[in-house]
Design a protein around this nucleic acid. Structure first.
Length: 202
DNA sequence: TCGCGGATGAACT
DNA sequence: GTTCATCCGCGAG
């Protein structure tokens, strides 16, 4: 996949309100990050679904100050820090009051790569946004974005161009210790920007 | 290409 | 004190 027709912001109402459906729907869509007058864009190539009543989902034990964004209406941003070193970018995925989300695991850089490179010490373009922690670093994502609406104008929103529906493959999720067998990871088949071991990229 | 271990911070028991 | 939806560097195959 390559760039890039004009990008149109998604509107609430055209995107699904159901976690697996949203995880699949977001593949091929575009993350637009606007910060300090700079614009970065990248296509979503890998997602994971974290369902209601899913023991691997942060909302599983109920609402807390950290995870409250997962309980917002579908399309809101949930960011948290993992392992003290990496931020994770999620989109809430169910009706208000239901805790669930979609983790964005890998992106294909489209525009503003010079800003992404500046955020990394040393990284080739393929690795800039390959992996959930790396993509957050490249796009300067932290808790300040938590709770914002990704279907509204702002520092981070989801858009679409005229690219056709991608060829979607699935696998088990990566890096978790609960519900490890559920096939809730989705990615664009054949994309070289997908993360994880080679056996989980086909 | 893989698997391993350490770094690191915040939330929660 | 324990648990992590990770990354990086390293060594083995």
């Amino acid at each position: 996949m390559t760039a890039s027709a004009p990008i149109r912001r998604l509107e609430r109402g055209e995107a699904p309100v159901e976690t697996v459906a949203l995880a699949r729907y977001l593949l091929g869509k575009i993350v637009v990050r606007e910060a300090d007058g700079r614009i970065m864009t990248a296509r979503i190539v890998e997602t994971e679904a974290y369902l209601p009543l899913d023991p691997a989902c942060h909302a599983f034990r109920g609402l807390t100050p950290r995870n409250r964004s997962l309980f917002l209406d579908a399309g809101h941003i949930y960011v948290y820090m993992c392992y003290g070193t990496s931020h994770m970018l999620n989109i809430s995925s169910e009706a208000a009051g239901v805790g669930a989300g979609v983790l964005l695991r890998a992106l294909e850089p489209l525009g503003g790569m010079e800003y992404m490179r500046a955020a990394h010490k040393r990284c080739n373009d393929r690795d800039l946004t390959r992996g959930p922690g790396r993509l957050a670093t490249a796009l300067s994502i932290d808790r300040r974005l938590d709770g914002l609406d990704a279907y509204a104008p702002g520092p981070l929103w989801i858009g679409s161009d005229t690219t056709g529906a991608p060829d979607i493959a699935s696998s088990v999720r990566i890096g978790i210790s609960k519900a490890v067998r559920a096939p809730l990871r989705f990615f664009i088949a054949g994309s070289r920007f997908v993360s994880g071991p080679a056996r989980l990229r086909r």
